[in-house]
């Protein structure tokens, strides 16, 4: 497992597109410590190694697909309503390729 450190936290926050300061890092380290200790203790649970990961709360099959019928379509105006800059029905962002 990756070693926990201020640098690792700052690196993670950078990838998440925000900054965290020193105080937040220290607070996070304390929270992490508690949770990670408890996660370690989970290794002692009987059956943990062989348990199937649970990704849905119910043991039901949800494989039935809905009919492929187009309805309740948002209008282009609605789709673009919250965008700040729109040109020719497209959301404008600053140039990506320089």
């Amino acid at each position: 497992m990756k070693q926990l450190s201020v640098n690792v936290l700052k690196e993670a926050s950078k990838k998440l597109f925000f900054a965290i300061d020193e105080t937040e890092c220290q607070s996070l380290l304390k929270t992490f410590e508690t949770i990670l200790q408890k996660m370690e203790a989970i290794d002692q649970l009987a059956g943990i190694k062989t348990a199937l990961p649970m990704v849905h709360p119910l043991d039901v099959k949800l494989s039935k697909l809905r009919s492929d019928i187009v309805k309740d379509v948002l209008s282009p105006d609605d789709v673009l309503r919250n965008a700040h800059d729109v040109v020719a029905n497209q959301i404008m962002i600053p140039k990506v390729v320089k």
């Binding site: 936290l9 998440l16 990961p53």
Partner: peptide, 27 residues
């Protein structure tokens, strides 16, 4: 932000099995 950083840490390639996957198994 702190919750997101924690979540991101749990999803890091090196940590996924030890944290995220293990949490799914414990669930």
């Amino acid at each position: 932000k702190q919750r997101f950083v924690f979540g991101s840490f749990c999803l890091m390639e090196e940590n996924q099995e030890e944290l995220y996957l293990k949490a799914q198994k414990a669930r």
